[in-house]
Design a protein around this nucleic acid. Structure first.
Lengths: 243, 243, 243, 243
DNA sequence: AATGAATGAGTTTTCATTCAT
DNA sequence: CATGAATGAAAACTCATTCAT
């Protein structure tokens, strides 16, 4: 039994990844030296190239891991909230809107969505470093540019991922109205991601403490979300729901 | 007098800045080579170092230009909308909320704010490349980190800029409620900036055309803004306004 | 007038090439460090990468220069010896042999060929370092593999080089008999190239002095060449010549 | 007893050597990575260092094997052809030429030599990969530089190898005339080695098939060899033979 | 104002070799 | 015998910056 000796082995790779996350998040991919990663991970530069064939592969690996987790999370929501409601007839997905069978269904959906939003928030918070990297890279021209959009599956096609398909089945068959796309992207995804990304800055700059920020952000989000639903006559033009 | 000859000379500097904006926005500051800037600007590397003492100075210059323009724009709003209302007694700024003298004042303020928001949007759009650079850099650890926060003057102090002071006078003396800070940052500034930053991507990825996007984003913003005002009982706890 | 200062400028590139030739010839391409080239050329590593974008490009450049010179030399021979004889009717090129109008034409051709061979020998000798590199590299699998064969234009096609075309016009239209190909390659080209390549080794190993070797090699070549012509009944099957 | 299990073990070494031959022949010693050898041999890098103490030792081992075989082959020829003729008085070796007792002795010697040449050719063919490596390395500056010369025992001394001595006894005591050295080296050894070395290239480049090439090369060699003997008045100045 | 050669410190990457198991 | 993680020295290459002209 040498548990203390076994760990240093394969976990060198983990240490490298951890160090890379911190550094990429802090200084950007281009601004980070492989040297620094090695130092921070307490391994030799050589070992980094033993596990990864290039600096870029470290980044690939990181973002891939994030995507996997995120996809699983999204799947969970679809499986637990959307699909049951569809099956029970409470929810119908039509070309450009969600059709709820009655007021109660709406409230139920909202409750679930709040819950999911909070989960997503904590997921983002937990992964805020990688998320920051993803944002940084998706603003650049390279191969990661589409990723932040794919996260919202605004982009059709390319969903070879089996897990992804289920999610897409629910979502992709109807065309969102432009406004819904806008709201979802700029007033849901972007704030959520930004929240995670700027979380540490808010603290460092002494604007709000972590708890304050989280609570306040959730209140604000809920408020906007409520508004979106109660104002659904604007966003979802035909108001068959109330009928 | 050789007016036709003088222009090509000093405009080399402009060409350098233009090339730098495009490249920094595309590949990030760290990801851009001085070489590439020289090529894109059709000047020699040497000339770049004639005009700028370092690569960083190019970036400084760029961001400084943006900040100047932006400050002027913000000043304009304060001067045209806030201050007159204060002078006329329609608006009173209290520690954690804006106090309007009556319903009509609110509507007027909203109208003005809509208008201002649209101006800000177009300003952001026009400067989207620099904005993208600013975002990219403010996510990193360096000297630009605070800039996106400063834009919202959430940060107290450090306003040596004379123009800045007037703006701050109105705003800084009272503590926003946490929620107001959150909403303003995550549901106003961040979406607005993101709109500009992702504007080109929406087109490149064939999600929405420029016009569609702009119109839709404005509708969505207005909707959220409306919600914020009509739901101000949530955001601005004591509802003296309606009284 | 600063002649002594002008030279160091562009001739740095020449110094790099010269150093590279020596080193590649001595230690092989893979065995030579860019560092060593820089030292030998008395320039910084950086400058090497200013002139050449990679180590491989140095090699490319070197071999390209050799090929150019060699092509010119071969052209000269064709222009001065083959074409005049064709025009005068003394020589006719048929599908698998050279057809001379009479004994005297043969002797004339042989005399010219001896002369040309000697020129080629001295050319090879002068360029023995690059030749050595070429041989070394053409034995490997990479992009240079075909070069030593192309030198003999045994390979058809790929002659975009305008200079090359004239040469090809004379030569490529008829199929050499296998034996002629063999003799030309293994008993003319290969010995000639080997002579140049091993020239220095013969001296270093104290086998023969330069002059001795050159004289002896020429005698031997002439002997073999003579044999080839006098035994042309074997190599050039149909003996119309003597008729 | 696990005979079926023992073989795969020790044959790992063979697999390593085989892989090394192929790779060294293809990419040169310096151009080959220990990694690649391991992969090609289907063993781990570690195992290579179990069998060989360094990359260089693999090469040493390879060339040593070739040299042993080649020496045996040469010995065979001396033992079977030269020594019997000397013993029978048909052949006498003088300072700068071979002295045959009569015309018939010459023809017999030639016949034997043709036969031996063919054997040598096939030997070279069989070992063409190692030969290629030997050539590649003997062109470089290192410890193998003299090897190709040693093959011709043009180099005096250093023959500690017991097998080698017998061969040398016959040959080394007299000084070849320069021309004989030249012819033997540049028009016998070099073509023969080149034949083996370029054998595969001729096929890959679709110049001649293996069989065609071999047959043609033998004819050509024989032709040159014949010429050398019939023209021996040139090569072997004093023509006592014909008397 | 402009050039382009030159620099050198620093960056990513490679690779033969070792070693604990 | 065999593995594969680990090393470190050195390799190729980069790039902001300087400088003589």
């Amino acid at each position: 039994m040498k548990p203390s000796l076994q760990q240093p082995q394969e976990d060198a790779k983990k240490r490298i990844l951890d160090a890379a996350v911190k550094l990429f998040a802090k200084k950007g991919y281009d601004g980070t030296r492989v040297n620094e990663i090695a130092e921070a991970a307490n391994v030799t530069k050589g070992l980094i190239y033993y596990y990864f064939k290039s600096k870029e592969e470290i980044l690939d690996c990181l973002l891939h891991l994030l995507l996997e987790d995120f996809t699983a999370l999204a799947m969970e929501f679809v499986r637990n909230n959307i699909i049951p409601m569809i099956k029970s007839g409470e929810l119908d997905i039509e070309p450009d809107r969600l059709h709820f069978s009655n007021e109660e269904a709406i409230m139920g959906f909202l409750r679930n969505t709040y819950g999911y939003f909070e989960e997503a928030l904590d997921f983002a918070l937990k992964n805020r470093d990688i998320l920051r990297i993803l944002m940084l890279e998706s603003l650049k021209d390279g191969k990661y540019r589409r990723n932040i959009f794919q996260a919202l599956h605004l982009l059709k096609g390319e969903e070879e991922n089996p897990v992804y398909k289920t999610l897409a089945e629910v979502d992709r068959d109807f065309t969102y109205s432009d406004d819904l796309v806008c709201i979802r992207f700029f007033f849901s995804l972007v704030p959520l991601v930004s929240f995670a990304i700027y979380y540490d800055d808010f603290q460092k700059l002494n604007i709000l403490s972590g708890e304050e920020l989280r609570a306040s952000f959730l209140r604000s989000s809920q408020f906007v979300l409520n508004a979106m639903v109660s104002g659904r006559d604007i966003l979802l033009p035909k108001k068959e729901v109330e009928s």
